[in-house]
Design a protein around this nucleic acid. Structure first.
Length: 551
RNA sequence: GCGUCCGUAGCUCAGUCGGAUAGAGCAACGGCCUUCUAAGCCGUGGGUCGUGCGUUCGAAUCGCACCGGUCGCACCA
């Protein structure tokens, strides 16, 4: 039995008993919240239950705490203490710690994988960059965070499907084709105006070059519309392949690549028909408008233009309807903060279609700034001077890039220090964590040589050093950390946890030796560091960062 | 003007469904390698939690106003 559950029940029972004894007024009990006290001297666990219930029992918190303390007992409890304004601090028998740790050891590699949750499937859509150019650093944050979130939710027992929405319809793809066309003509020495909203990146020239290399000048003879159609498909295929490649190099893969084209025209019309029928869409000035103001938006939005061409929103309405129709209980989108203005209208559209807009969760990622040598690296989409994800990976590596992208809360703007990410020192949190893992691997290599191994039931009660106790406790917090981080959609919590766990290990390592301390203690310590390595591996796995055996 | 997010130590950030002396890393300073990886450890100093008012027994945390920064406010995607 989980000790926190045991404690919670003991507190509730003590309160019920005090009510039965006539000490407390009959009242609804507040929720029991257990926390790990900020300081060791305050015990293993603490609760503010007495303070929370002061109002309902009409008693001073410390008196409530006293009445509860008298009524709490269990063979797991050493003693309780009342402190501060009315905290109840619990000091547990030491065997509780060892029993808990023994169960973690039994779980082995499965520790950190939570039981499947009985809730509907979750979908996470992220990156979904237009296939019109390479991914840049901003997409990198989305890619790292999104994939880590998917891993995290799965570890926490949710069923998750990951998805990339390919914007392969509409203007930007026509511009892509026109841009490739312009480069094609240019390379073959023909007159051609570069499209006004064209893409200036070098990758477009490369695409044109590859077309020439493969098929030569044969498209010159083709009518322009036909040629554009060919180039469109060719460019799209290349761009998609490049996206996939960049993402895979970044430890990012998807269950589904969803093409926007498949929504046109049927799915878009279907969605519009529903909205027209239920009165949430109306015609004005020849266009069709979503009555989004009825659902909290600032203004109504055009869905079908007066020329009959659907807006981007039209496809998005059909797309999100499609997601809900696929039966997901929760639909999560990870967007850049620059799209925040768009959230309200998509949610409004879902509400207008009769879905619960709260089941669409849009996580907004704040902007990324790169720093090199203490200076901001200027980025500009317009001139194509932005740093690409591939360049970033080339410079700092996948592990460092992923960790740095994930380590901050999504709400915070991210200052990405390239020098720090590259540095092979303890300043660099990624190396700090990986180093802990490599050190442990090294210990096991040496243990193997000396014939030392963890037996079936190591004598854990020999682990009495303060460093050992605190490392055991930290390992014990991991499962709950996974659960919390998942519930909050906060992969950065795992990044921080891994860092803290590595810190606990390094402290232990400098204090306690494993080889040459006697067989039983050595075995127990080997079990401890083995478990540490396993948890670091699992946490890094969630983050999509490697756990090296050697550094 | 409206909206988003942010404002905590010199720097980068935790902590935010209210609770015990506000934490970590870097930077500064001082220690620790004849023993499992010093990419490590131990220690010292450093904070009006942007400002004000309010709610509360209690506010970095909740509410309101203001200040500073950020991103956005299309029949673009």
């Amino acid at each position: 039995m989980d000790i926190k559950v045991t404690l919670t029940e003991a507190i509730e029972q003590a309160a019920e008993k005090a009510i039965a004894d006539g000490v407390f007024a009959k009242a609804e009990l507040p929720l029991v919240v257990l926390e790990i006290p900020p300081q060791r001297e305050f015990g293993d666990f603490a609760t503010n239950f007495a303070m929370q219930s002061a109002r309902v029992f009409h008693m001073a918190p410390r008196r409530i705490a006293e009445a509860l303390a008298e009524r709490i007992q269990g063979d797991w409890l050493d003693h309780v203490q009342i402190a501060g304004p009315g905290f109840i601090n619990f000091y547990l028998k030491s065997n509780v710690l060892y029993d808990t740790f023994a169960r973690i050891l039994e779980q082995g590699e499965n520790y950190g994988i939570l039981p499947a949750k009985d809730v509907p499937r979750i979908q996470v859509e992220y990156v979904s960059a237009n296939p019109t150019g390479p991914l840049h650093v901003g997409h990198g944050r989305g890619a790292a965070t999104g994939s880590a979130l998917v891993n995290l939710l799965r570890a926490a027992g949710y069923s998750v499907q990951s998805e990339y929405y390919i914007n392969d319809a509409g203007n930007q793809i026509d511009n892509l084709a026109a841009s490739v066309n312009a480069r094609y003509m240019e390379l073959l020495g023909k007159e051609s105006d570069f499209p006004e909203n064209g893409y200036h990146g070098a990758d477009i020239v490369d695409t044109a070059r590859r077309i020439i290399k493969k098929d030569g000048e044969k498209y010159l003879a083709m009518p322009e519309q036909e040629r554009l159609a060919v180039f469109k498909e060719r460019a799209l295929q290349e761009k998609l392949a490049a996206l996939r490649e960049d993402l895979e190099a970044f430890n990012v893969t998807y269950d589904v690549w969803f093409s926007e084209r498949t929504l046109h025209p049927d799915a878009v019309h279907e969605a519009c028909d529903i909205l027209k029928k239920n009165g949430n869409m109306y015609e004005k000035d020849g266009a069709f408008w979503l009555k989004s103001t009825a659902y909290g938006d600032d203004k109504d939005r055009v869905v079908i233009r007066d020329n009959g061409v659907p807006t981007y929103l039209a496809a998005d309405i059909a797309y999100h309807r499609n997601k809900f129709e696929r039966g997901f209980g929760k639909v999560i989108n990870i967007w850049g903060a620059d799209h925040h203005g768009y959230v309200c209208r998509v949610k409004a559209a879902m509400a207008a279609l009769g879905y619960n807009p709260d089941n669409l969760e849009v996580l907004l990622l704040q902007m990324v700034s790169l720093y090199r040598g203490g200076e901001l690296v200027k980025m500009s989409k317009r001139t194509g001077q932005s740093v690409t994800l591939a360049e970033l990976i080339e410079e700092v590596g996948t592990d460092a890039a992923r960790y740095f992208f994930i380590m901050r809360s999504l709400d915070s703007q991210l200052d990405f220090d390239l020098d720090l990410a590259k540095s092979q020192s303890n300043d660099n949190p990624v190396y700090y964590i990986q180093y802990a893992h490599a050190r442990i691997a090294s210990i096991f290599r040496q243990a193997r040589e000396t014939g030392l191994a963890v037996g079936p039931s190591p004598k854990l009660s020999l682990l009495t050093d303060a460093m050992e106790i605190s490392l055991i406790k930290k390992i014990g917090e991991y499962a709950e950390e996974v659960d919390k981080a998942a519930a909050e959609y906060a992969p950065q919590r795992i990044a921080r946890y891994a860092y803290e766990l590595a810190g606990e290990f390094h402290s232990f390592y400098n204090k306690c030796r494993i080889m040459g301390v006697g067989q039983e203690l050595a075995e127990a310590r080997l079990a401890l560091v083995g478990s540490t390595a396993q948890v670091i591996r699992h946490a890094l796995g969630i983050l999509g960062v490697s756990a090296p055996e050697k550094m």
